[in-house]
């Protein structure tokens, strides 16, 4: 490294490695976790009460939580919420293949 002359601020000897912030900091936004939870709830009630629109909303919720997920989130949870919501949709159509009745 060249000699640190007067106006060269670089100091190769003072390098500090990057320490990742703890995950639960106040800064990160809660939407992926909320959407994940909402997706789980909707797919549960879609499966239990055979409501098709619940299952579809569950698919949307897990997709939104996938879109907003952080890279530090583990993909297993993402995958499980997707599997659950898609299985809710498939199950509700296997039981009665009629078109979906909107909730209103």
């Amino acid at each position: 490294m060249q000699q640190p002359n007067a106006n060269d601020p670089k100091r190769a000897n003072k390098i500090v490695r990057y320490k990742a912030q703890p995950a639960g900091g106040p800064g990160d936004d809660p939407t992926p976790d909320y959407m994940n939870l909402l997706g789980m709830i909707f797919s549960m009630c879609g499966l239990m009460m055979k409501l098709k629109w619940c299952a579809w909303v569950a698919v949307y919720c897990s997709f939104i939580s996938f879109a907003n997920s952080r890279t530090t989130d583990d993909t297993k949870q993402m995958l499980s919420s997707f599997m659950l919501s898609i299985s809710a949709v498939v199950m509700s159509y296997l039981q009665n293949p009629q078109p979906m009745q909107p909730p209103w």
Binding site: P4, P9, K10, R11, A12, N13, K14, I15, V16, R17, Y18, A67, N68, S69, R70, T71, T72
Partner: peptide, 23 residues
């Protein structure tokens, strides 16, 4: 350039006088 999420990117620089690091 570290990608925290689809819309948050972070960059860590270090090795400067009187500065520990810059995020």
């Amino acid at each position: 350039l570290m990608k925290e999420s689809e819309n948050v990117y972070t960059l860590w620089c270090s090795g400067r006088t009187c500065v520990e690091g810059m995020l």
